[in-house]
Design a protein around this nucleic acid. Sequence first.
DNA 1: GAAATTTGACCCAT
DNA 2: ATGGGTCAAATTTC
Length: 324
Amino acid sequence: MTLGRQRELVAQLRELLFPATTDECSSVKLETGESTTRADAVACGGRRRRRASGKRAWGHDDEAAAGSNPQPRCSKRRKKQQSSSLVTSTPDFDGYQWRKYGQKQIEGAMYPRSYYRCTWSAEQGCPAKRTVQRNDDDIVNGGVDGSPPKYTVVYVAEHTCSANESMEAPVILETTAVPTTNDNRPTDADDLENNVAGPAFLAPPETRHDAAAAAVDAASSPATTAFTAGTESPATSDDVTWSSASDHVVVDDYDSSWMFAGAVDDSWAPTTPPVESSLVQDMDDFTGPIRSPVHVAAGGCWTIDPYLLLVNEPITNFLAGFSF
DNA sequence: GAAATTTGACCCAT
DNA sequence: ATGGGTCAAATTTC
């Protein structure tokens, strides 16, 4: 593979992983499409729904809701809005913090679709949303060969939230469990911790708990574990079995896991041999966030360090995990 | 008690 | 009429 080709693939990957950071960081969206939303539809009379058989008396709800929701829903027509989608086995690791606001069983789909909006949608009016749905073919591919389940993630609208935690902190694209102590890391890694994944981005305990479920979920891959901070797992872990093989970092060329595992290891300890199992934390022992230096600041946006991507060769294998 | 998630109802586009 | 997206009360979790 030529360097140029690799860079091209890196650019594509960046688009996939940061579909919302389009202004400075990207200009192309892969697999773009149209989706609908009411969130930013035209202003109108502000009609509000009323439950026919509410679980609670409504009476005051119109006023209360109007007070809590400064931008009452008022659309008469859904506005077409551009979206981008990708297929990934690690849907959580997109660098933003999301709050789930709904889940629905989709007609003809085996798994429900989860709806998320930016955590800062209320505070900052960020319109970004996404849906996550596990692919149907997981029942065939995921359960037999041990490959992680794939999720189709559709992003709608771009983040307008300012330089808050979601941007200051990078994507936690970690797929390996790394001790949170600094003992095993060089100074530059410490800097990365402080600057890239500072305390501001540490997920609240409950979120980390959910992320742990995601980790277990992603751990269905024989080679890796996954973890994130700030997002919750769209998948349930009840259909996942924990693999003890995750105790070891193994570069897996099947999906994205290989990249982050290997890349992280190389960057966190550039002068040392590949991480040993002793450096990898058992999920059972995991108590803190996992940080990844895979993403670096570039032009005000968080992006992927091309070097780290190029550390490992089989990038095409990784990219094959996405749908183009 | 606060925050996040769950879940059934509601609403709109097709 | 129906499917999909959203709301918001109830529930769960910490």
